[in-house]
């Protein structure tokens, strides 16, 4: 059963999740731009990426508050939000370790393979988190809502990946590393939530 609304923050701490998601996205875009201009790159970007990751804390808190206000914060949802936060931090940590080891130790062979695989490990737990949510969520409508949002995220990954792949094949677009599927999927998941909320508002709810 969903938890009742309580202590929905006001002012700075009570901002909408979209604000913190946008702040996180803008920070990452600024880092990418700085890397493109040669101001940052490799391990030098890590402190900035770590700082940008801090936006995920208020984002998670704002998401919890918003879901509570909408009468949609179940215990399973709270666990899902917490696990996603933990593994997002894990992703940044693994990425940082891998890049640091590569830049300072210049590994070869098995160690190089190991650190190349390391940033992918948290992805296993992202998928596990989503699977656990579907299993643990007792509220069938919330489960339907989250599953629909995840499918929208998957659709965006498939469409964007296929489109960009062909653009690359025909030589009209630059190469983009395959690990971009993670941020694209995360954006799709967020868009999916917005689509579901918009559909609810059209039927005179929320």
């Amino acid at each position: 059963m969903a938890e009742k609304t309580k202590n929905v923050g006001k002012g700075f701490s009570g901002r909408q999740p979209g604000f913190w998601a946008a702040a996180f996205a803008l920070a990452m875009c600024a880092i990418a731009f700085a890397e493109h201009r040669g101001l940052l790159g490799g391990w030098r970007s890590l402190p900035f990426v770590a700082a940008a990751t801090l936006f995920l804390f208020p984002l998670t808190k704002a998401a919890n508050n918003r879901q509570a206000a909408a009468g949609a914060l179940s215990p399973a949802t709270r666990r899902y939000n917490r696990r996603m936060l933990i593994w997002s931090l894990g992703y940044v940590l693994c990425l940082g370790i891998a890049m640091t080891v590569r830049n300072y130790l210049h590994p070869q062979g098995a160690l190089l393979w190991g650190i190349a695989v390391l940033p992918s490990v948290p992805m296993i737990f992202f998928v596990w988190t989503l699977a656990r949510y579907v299993v643990e969520e007792e509220d069938e409508y919330l489960r339907y809502r989250q599953t629909s949002a995840a499918l929208i995220g998957l659709a965006l990954v498939l469409l964007a990946g296929t489109l960009w792949g062909f653009l690359e094949t025909f030589g009209v677009a630059p190469h983009v590393p395959a690990w971009w599927v993670v941020p694209v999927w995360a954006i799709g998941l967020g868009l999916g939530q917005m689509v579901m909320t918009s559909a609810e508002r059209r039927t005179g709810r929320t």
Partner: peptide
Amino acid sequence: EVSRQSVNAIETGK
């Protein structure tokens, strides 16, 4: 023992 959002969704036929 469901969320308020569930009741809302069912009521409105969504």
